[in-house]
Every structure is written in C-alpha cells, then in structure tokens.
C-alpha cells in the first residue's frame, strides 16, 4: 500500500504562536491519503497544536496566531475565502477525553448531519446514524438504547461514539488527539482495530504518547520535539532505524 502515496495534507513552514511564545517552528510535513500518520513526541512538544492547525481548531483560541501554509488537496485552508465551518466538516476530530454531548446516543451522531443539512428525511438521517455507528463498531452494543444519554456509555464506548459522530458527516480526514489515553488496554485495542478499518476510507492523523500504539497503527510517523519536526518517515524506518539521535533517544526511552 505504500506504493500509491497521494499527498492529502501538506504543510509549508507552519509556525504557531501563543501570544509571544512560539509553539511550532517552521514545520513542513506531508500526510498521505488513506494512511495513518502518527505524531509522537514528549509532552508540550506541539504535536497537538500542530494537529489542531489542520482543522483550524486553533482559531477558537484568542491568543493563537499561525503563519505558513496548510494545504489540503493543494488548497490553502487559511485563505480568507475559506469557511472554517465547512473545513471542519471535511476534517473531523476525536479528542483525548471522550466528549459526547449530554444528548441521546442517536442525537449525538445526528448532530453533524443536522447542522450541515446532509439529510432530507427522517429515514435518511436514521440510516446515516446507523451506518456511522456500524462503521465505528458500536451499533451492536447500542442498538437497543439509542435514546439513552451518550454519557451513560463506558469510556471506550463513548470514544467510539465520538468517532461515529465524526464520521457521520463523511469527512476526508480524521484527526485523533490521543484518543486512547483515557481508556483501558481492552478499549484501546478495540479503537486501534477500528483505526485500521477506517484507514481504507479516511486519512487519519493521530497524536499519541504510546510508541507501541504509533508502531501498531500508523504507516508514517513524525517525531516532534520543542515545536520542531525532528524526523518524519515510514513508521518501520523511524522505529527500527532512526536517522536522528534525538528520535532514537526518545524511541528507546532514554528521554521523554
């Protein structure tokens, strides 16, 4: 699968500032279509900040400022004519802590399609919700209690509900910000399997603290340190044969 590499997201000299503090320094990165790219690095290295540049979630933080270019399908997502609302329908996001809305399971998944007006009838909406829950591997567990609150599910189920919610608007890219850090190993394994399946239809970028997870789920790995992109390449190469000393230190557990 490595042979057909189409670039989905391209960043050119991206820098991010929080007030005076520079969190990301001139990052150039390519993210390939239908692959999983993992961003690893010690805490505070800027990998989450970088992730949030791809769907412009940093816009919601007042003091945050971005320079450089982020291109999705060769289109600059920071140009003035681009509506971040539409962008975020194309680039879904799953967060560190499962954050289902305090609504029913059905309404959680139906949220995106409703605000974007994706369906024309109630039946269509129901089909879409069922479909998304199936894709997220949650449908069989919740089909009898679609009207219960999303917050009544277990942590792993909540996270899959959030994934279902994200894929309900058929995004092209799914960003995952440490999606398993609040979950136990079994729930984590379920999510990782799910990521493997989702990869066929979506481009996935995942931030993770677990190097084993990065090695298991991703084809490409980027190592960040202090806001710099230190090394980027195929996951197998990064883990077996890192070119950079810092990357090696981090991967072998000497730092971080």
């Amino acid at each position: 699968m490595v042979s057909k590499k189409k670039i989905k997201v391209l960043t050119k000299r991206v820098s991010v500032f929080y007030g005076d503090k520079q969190a990301i320094k001139d990052v150039n990165l390519e993210i390939y279509e239908n692959q999983v790219t993992s961003l690893i690095g010690p805490s505070g290295c800027g990998k989450s900040t970088f992730l949030r540049c791809i769907n412009r979630m940093n816009d919601t933080i007042d003091i945050c400022r971005i320079t450089g270019k982020v291109l999705i399908d060769n289109d600059d997502i920071y140009k003035a004519t681009l509506d971040p609302v539409l962008l975020r329908a194309r680039v879904g996001m799953v967060f560190q802590k499962p954050n289902p809305f305090p609504k029913s399971i059905f309404d959680n998944v139906a949220y995106g399609p409703q605000i974007h007006g994706l369906t024309n009838s109630k039946e269509e909406l129901e089909d879409l919700v069922v479909n998304s829950l199936q894709k997220a591997g949650l449908f069989n567990e919740v089909k009898d209690r679609m009207n219960e609150s999303g917050t009544s599910l277990s942590g792993g189920q909540q996270q899959r509900l959030c994934i279902a919610r994200a894929i309900a608007v058929s995004p092209e890219i799914i960003l995952m910000d440490e999606p398993c850090s609040a979950l136990d190993p079994i729930a984590t394994a379920v999510i990782e399997e799910l990521i493997d399946e989702l990869m066929q239809n979506y481009t996935i970028v995942i931030v993770t603290h677990s190097m084993q997870q990065a090695a298991r789920v991703s084809q490409q790995t980027a190592y960040f340190h202090m806001g710099n992109l230190i090394e980027f390449g195929e996951t197998s190469k990064i883990f077996q044969n890192p070119k950079n000393k810092q990357t090696q230190d981090y991967i072998t557990g000497r730092i971080g």
């Binding site: 769907n55 979630m57 919601t60 609302v85 539409l86 962008l87 975020r88 329908a89 879904g92 996001m93 967060f95 802590k97 954050n99 289902p100 809305f101 305090p102 949220y111 995106g112 605000i115 974007h116 959030c162 919610r165 994200a166 608007v169």
Partner: peptide, 22 residues
C-alpha cells in the same frame, strides 16, 4: 466544559449552533 464546545466546533458547528444545541 470546554471539551464539549470543542467537540461541537470540531463538527463544524458555528458559535450560535453550539450555544443553541450544546
């Protein structure tokens, strides 16, 4: 919690939609 608002914004909801619906 901010995480709920983030969840809504990340779905492409506008500010007023987030206020109204979440």
């Amino acid at each position: 919690p901010q995480s709920l608002k983030d969840g809504s914004y990340a779905m492409g909801a506008t500010k007023s939609e987030t206020v109204k619906k979440v």
